[in-house]
């Protein structure tokens, strides 16, 4: 189910689900961690062989994939750790300075 958490900081006693239960799954996608980055991975599509190595090693589930094809990088959640660039066998991802 979807769970509307707008204005949660102002919720009062009794507004929260009993026991602090989170009545949904995976809503952390609504929380953006992209702002943590100091470096940003840049995907060089023409070099990419779609081997999925970056995908299997991404700690933030931030390699966008569909039908076994890489589509790009989810900058809303990518923290810029650089593992994808370090592990890519085709040098298809490069780290560059994050824009201010």
């Amino acid at each position: 189910m979807s769970w509307d958490i707008k204005n949660l900081k102002n919720w009062k006693v009794g507004d929260h689900p009993p026991g602090a239960l989170i009545p949904t799954g995976g809503n952390a996608v609504e929380y953006k961690t992209g702002g943590w980055r100091s470096e940003k991975p840049r995907w060089i599509e023409e070099k990419c062989t779609h081997c999925m190595i970056c995908w299997v090693f991404c700690p933030d589930t931030s390699i966008e994939v569909k039908e076994s094809k890489m589509l790009g990088i989810d900058y809303d959640h990518c923290k810029g750790c650089g593992i994808c660039a370090a592990e890519c066998p085709s040098d298809a991802i490069e780290m560059e300075e994050e824009e201010k």
Binding site: L8, K9, L21, I22, T24, G25
Partner: peptide, 12 residues
């Protein structure tokens, strides 16, 4: 209908 039981009340 997945649920999360026992979350961390750390930051909010």
């Amino acid at each position: 209908e997945p649920i999360t039981v026992g979350p961390f009340d750390g930051l909010h």
